[in-house]
């Protein structure tokens, strides 16, 4: 399975990874090699096999609906790259 540079560009775009052309070319080769390894899955006979999402076959535990006061905003925003008036800032999004 070989990935074209165009495909790598699309995946990088999906994952919001800013890569230059050299990186794209390198990754195309590396990702193709990885997908070659992974391709052996095709051969496995999985007829009637249920997908396994978790190692343990358990059901969700449901929490009681009780609200707890939130840790201070200042604690969280002290580590934020850009905040003003209690909100996080990002470059203006034009709708």
């Amino acid at each position: 399975m070989s990935l074209s540079e165009e495909q790598v560009r699309n995946v990088a775009r999906l994952a919001r990874l800013g890569l230059d052309d050299d990186q794209i070319a390198e990754y195309a080769g590396e990702l193709s090699n990885i997908l070659d390894v992974v391709a052996s899955l095709e051969q496995a006979d999985t007829t009637d096999v249920e997908p396994m999402a978790h190692p343990l076959d358990l059901a969700a535990r449901l929490r009681a609906d009780e609200a707890v006061a939130v840790q201070s905003r200042e604690d969280f925003q002290a580590i934020a790259p850009a905040v003003a008036e209690g909100v996080y800032l990002v470059p203006k999004v034009i709708e």
Binding site: D65, A67, V70, G86
Partner: peptide, 20 residues
Amino acid sequence: QSKIFSTAPTAYGAEPNTQA
């Protein structure tokens, strides 16, 4: 009373990011 996956309160109209 609380959010779907966290215990933060759901009340409307609080100061920004004080119920996150």
